[in-house]
Measured scan of single mutants.
Amino acid sequence: ENVVSAPMPGKVLRVLVRVGDRVRVGQGLLVLEAMKMENEIPSPRDGVVKRILVKEGEIVDTGQPKIELG
C-alpha cells in the first residue's frame, strides 16, 4: 500500500511529516478531526514520504488519498 487514504471524512488539522521523511509503521502521519474528535492517522508500513496530497485545514472524504509512501 503506497497511498494512505482517509478512513473517515473530516478536516486535516495537522500534517506531522514532510516529503523525504522516513516513517515507521504506526508512526503518526497527520491529525484528522472527525465528529469533534482528533484522530492521528498512522503509517501502514515503513517507508519514505514521497508526496503529501492534502493541506492543513482541508476537508477530506472517506477513501481520499492523503499521503504517498515510497
Rank of each mutant, 00 (worst) to 15 (best):
E1L: 14
E1T: 14
E1F: 12
E1W: 11
E1S: 14
E1D: 13
E1G: 13
N2R: 10
N2M: 14
N2W: 15
N2I: 15
V3D: 04
V3N: 06
V3L: 13
V4K: 04
V4E: 03
V4A: 05
V4L: 08
V4D: 03
V4G: 04
V4F: 04
V4R: 03
V4Q: 04
S5C: 15
A6R: 03
A6C: 12
P7F: 10
P7T: 13
M8G: 09
P9K: 11
P9S: 10
P9G: 11
P9C: 09
P9H: 10
G10K: 03
G10F: 00
G10V: 06
G10S: 04
G10A: 06
G10D: 02
G10I: 05
G10H: 01
K11T: 10
K11Q: 06
V12M: 01
L13I: 13
L13D: 06
L13T: 10
R14G: 06
R14K: 13
R14S: 06
R14W: 01
R14Y: 03
V15M: 06
V15K: 02
V15R: 00
L16R: 04
L16A: 03
L16K: 05
V17Y: 00
V17E: 03
R18K: 14
R18W: 04
R18C: 12
R18S: 13
R18L: 08
R18V: 12
V19S: 05
V19H: 05
V19E: 11
G20M: 06
G20S: 05
G20V: 03
G20E: 05
G20H: 06
D21K: 01
D21S: 07
D21V: 08
D21E: 13
D21H: 05
R22W: 14
R22V: 13
R22K: 12
R22G: 08
R22F: 14
V23D: 02
V23W: 02
V23E: 01
R24K: 14
R24I: 12
R24V: 14
R24P: 02
G26C: 09
Q27S: 06
Q27K: 05
Q27R: 03
G28C: 14
G28P: 15
G28E: 05
G28F: 08
L29T: 03
L29H: 01
L29P: 00
L30K: 00
L30V: 12
L30T: 04
L30P: 01
L30H: 01
L30M: 09
L30A: 05
V31I: 14
V31E: 02
V31Y: 04
L32N: 01
L32T: 02
L32F: 11
L32S: 00
L32I: 14
E33H: 06
E33V: 10
E33W: 15
E33S: 07
E33P: 00
A34H: 14
A34P: 00
A34K: 03
M35L: 12
M35H: 13
M35I: 08
M35E: 13
M35K: 10
M35V: 09
K36Y: 13
K36Q: 14
K36V: 07
M37G: 13
M37Y: 08
E38N: 08
E38W: 08
E38A: 10
E38V: 11
N39L: 15
N39G: 06
N39E: 11
E40F: 12
E40A: 08
E40N: 08
I41E: 03
I41S: 02
I41R: 00
P42Q: 13
P42Y: 12
S43E: 03
S43L: 03
S43G: 03
S43R: 01
P44V: 05
P44W: 07
P44C: 06
P44G: 04
P44L: 06
P44D: 07
R45M: 14
R45L: 12
R45F: 13
R45V: 14
D46G: 08
D46F: 07
D46N: 12
D46L: 05
G47E: 01
G47V: 03
G47N: 02
G47Y: 00
V48T: 10
V49C: 04
V49W: 00
V49N: 00
V49F: 00
V49A: 02
V49L: 00
K50W: 06
K50T: 13
K50N: 09
K50M: 11
R51L: 07
R51H: 08
R51M: 06
R51V: 09
R51A: 12
I52A: 01
I52E: 02
I52D: 03
L53D: 04
L53A: 03
V54D: 01
V54C: 07
V54P: 02
V54H: 02
V54N: 02
V54T: 05
V54A: 05
K55S: 11
K55I: 11
K55C: 10
K55Y: 11
K55P: 01
E56A: 12
E56K: 09
E56G: 05
G57T: 04
G57W: 05
G57H: 05
E58Q: 13
E58Y: 06
E58W: 08
E58I: 04
I59W: 15
I59D: 10
I59S: 10
I59E: 11
I59Q: 11
V60L: 07
V60K: 01
V60H: 02
V60W: 05
V60R: 02
V60Q: 02
G63Q: 07
G63R: 07
G63F: 09
G63A: 08
G63E: 06
G63T: 06
G63W: 09
G63C: 09
Q64C: 07
Q64N: 06
Q64L: 06
Q64A: 09
P65V: 11
P65S: 08
P65A: 12
P65H: 09
P65Y: 06
K66N: 15
K66G: 15
K66A: 15
K66Y: 15
K66Q: 15
K66P: 08
I67D: 01
I67L: 09
I67Y: 03
E68R: 07
E68M: 13
E68K: 06
L69S: 02
L69G: 02
L69Q: 02
L69R: 02
L69I: 13
L69M: 07
L69W: 06
G70P: 03
G70E: 15
